[in-house]
């Protein structure tokens, strides 16, 4: 435990919110912004600027931010869990699912 970290929700209908500070597994998250105040703990280490699920999101459901679907869940997601390339895919850009989870760098490009 290293204190509270702010989780910022943009739209009342969102099922994810943005972490404003780096959090470690088990850290308490302080809800801020739109929507209902809630108690959450980080499921795993998650970096500032990344998204965390506010409630359970079943496989195939929309990931909602700004009140709009920003992608589709490619796995069942638990509250407090990091939402990124490993469990959310674009409806348009197929390539983003092939990027490295942490660096965002393409993994399929051949250099030789």
């Amino acid at each position: 435990m290293s204190g509270k970290h702010v989780l910022f929700q943009i739209h009342a209908q969102d099922n994810v919110a943005t972490l404003l500070d780096d959090a470690r597994q088990g850290d308490l998250l302080e809800h801020r912004g739109e929507g209902q105040d809630m108690f959450l703990q980080a499921w795993q280490e998650t970096a500032a600027g990344h998204k965390i699920a506010l409630r359970p999101i079943p496989l195939g459901d929309s990931i909602i931010k700004y009140g709009v679907a920003i992608g589709i869940a490619t796995a069942a997601i638990r509250p407090g869990e990091w939402v990124h390339l490993h469990n959310c895919k674009s409806r348009y850009d197929a390539r983003s699912s092939l990027l490295d989870l942490n660096s965002g760098v393409p993994t399929e490009t051949r250099y030789e």
Binding site: T18, L19, A47, A48, G49, H50, K51, I63, V68, A69, I70, G71, V83, H84, L85, C88, K89, S90, R91, Y92, D93, S96, L99, N102, S103, G104, V105, P106
Partner: peptide, 12 residues
């Protein structure tokens, strides 16, 4: 890539 590393997951 920097956008993804910063926490953005999709172009949407």
């Amino acid at each position: 890539p920097g956008n993804f590393a910063g926490g953005l997951t999709t172009i949407e």
